[in-house]
């Protein structure tokens, strides 16, 4: 009962949120919640690698940023009318751009994953971080697309005839994407692939012994995970109508990991819950003091030392 009740309550709250925020006179809360949902999507994407595949990636900011840049670059070309590399013209349609973002970040994840998955454990953590830094520096040096200033575009991408300027509309669009993504996650993870992945996480050698190509499955999980992060980046680019290398700063990767663990890695809704908790906490601490990180840091340490399993598992829910 509980298993269905909480998600439905949460969904109802989200559906009503823009009205509530307008009523209590702080429309800025709509954007805050949109941000939470987008980062929740990114954390949930990371969770496919982390929670279900057991791959601790400290480099997901790269895919998140690549997804965002796909939007920024495509939109800029659509506005200027110049084709990208003289070949493909840009687009201003959200659906097209999101597809591009997902495909491009998936390709990046395929390349980085193929190299990084040759290692495991701590080395995997360090290597994903190093590759993410490499992508970060690449975009920092990309003067044609703003370098460290980033790219700004005036209008959000178009979706049907919706008024995307309106923050509440964009809130619902984001919610739609989040729900679709979570649906895909649930499908994937209950499929044969998801079960095999769980087996690999628990005992890779045993899975190899029964004839599973574990490298390929982990690689697929990493790619899907990168695609989800790219989707989140695409939405974030649209929310702020701005992309910059800051999006792929390595601390973003760290925060995504925190969201997963805080909410409960290995659960479907946990990472989203974790994103809401972490961003909510950050926003609250930020109203108290500019130096909120000095409080957040020790809180994180305490969280790791004191309680394990995450928010989604409080109250005895099974992983």
């Amino acid at each position: 009962m509980r298993k269905i009740l909480f998600p439905i309550l949460g969904l109802a709250l989200l559906l009503a949120w823009p009205f509530v925020a307008e009523k209590i006179g702080s429309p800025a809360l709509i954007t805050l919640f949109t941000r939470m949902m987008i980062l929740g999507l990114a954390a949930s994407a990371l969770n496919i690698a982390l929670g279900f595949g057991g791959l601790v990636s400290l480099g997901h900011a790269a895919f998140y940023g690549i997804g965002a840049y796909a939007i920024g670059i495509s939109t800029t070309h659509a506005i200027s009318g110049e084709p990208f590399l003289g070949l493909v013209s840009g687009s201003n349609l959200l659906i097209v751009n999101v597809l591009v973002a997902v495909v491009v970040s998936g390709m990046a994840a395929a390349i980085i994953g193929a190299l990084a998955l040759r290692t495991s454990g701590i080395q995997f953590i360090m290597i994903t971080l190093a590759f993410a830094q490499m992508v970060f520096f690449l975009f920092l040096a990309l003067k044609a697309y703003g370098g460290d200033d980033g790219l700004t575009f005036r209008r959000r991408n178009a979706l049907f005839d919706l008024n995307m300027r309106d923050d509440a509309t964009f809130f619902y669009v984001t919610l739609g994407f989040l729900l679709v993504w979570l649906g895909i996650c649930a499908r994937v993870l209950h499929s044969r692939f998801g079960l095999l992945l769980g087996g690999i996480r628990q005992n890779e050698r045993r899975m190899q012994a029964i004839g599973v190509n574990t490298f390929r499955l982990k690689w697929f999980a990493f790619i899907i995970s990168g695609m989800g992060a790219g989707l989140a980046g695409a939405l974030m680019a649209n929310l702020g109508r701005f992309v910059s290398p800051d999006l792929m700063h390595w601390t973003t990767s760290g925060e995504l990991l925190i969201m997963c663990v805080l909410g409960g890695s290995g659960t479907i809704l946990g990472p989203v819950l974790g994103a809401f908790a972490l961003i909510g906490l950050e926003a609250t601490l930020n109203t108290w003091t500019e130096h909120w990180q000095a409080i957040l840091g020790p809180l994180l340490v305490l969280m790791v030392l004191a309680f394990r399993g995450g928010l989604a598992r409080i109250g005895g829910r099974k992983p």
């Binding site: 982390l50 601790v56 400290l58 454990g121 701590i122 953590i125 760290g254 990991l257 925190i258 663990v261 890695s265 130096h291 909120w292 990180q293 000095a294 957040l296 840091g297 020790p298 809180l299 994180l300 340490v301 969280m303 790791v304 030392l305 394990r308």
Partner: peptide, 22 residues
């Protein structure tokens, strides 16, 4: 596991950076 180590030491970084700023 390594994930817990990453998270806790990430928290330490946030703390040290802010303390230095303070």
């Amino acid at each position: 596991d390594h994930l817990d180590q990453v998270l806790a030491t990430f928290g330490l970084i946030l703390f040290f950076n802010q303390m230095i700023i303070l």
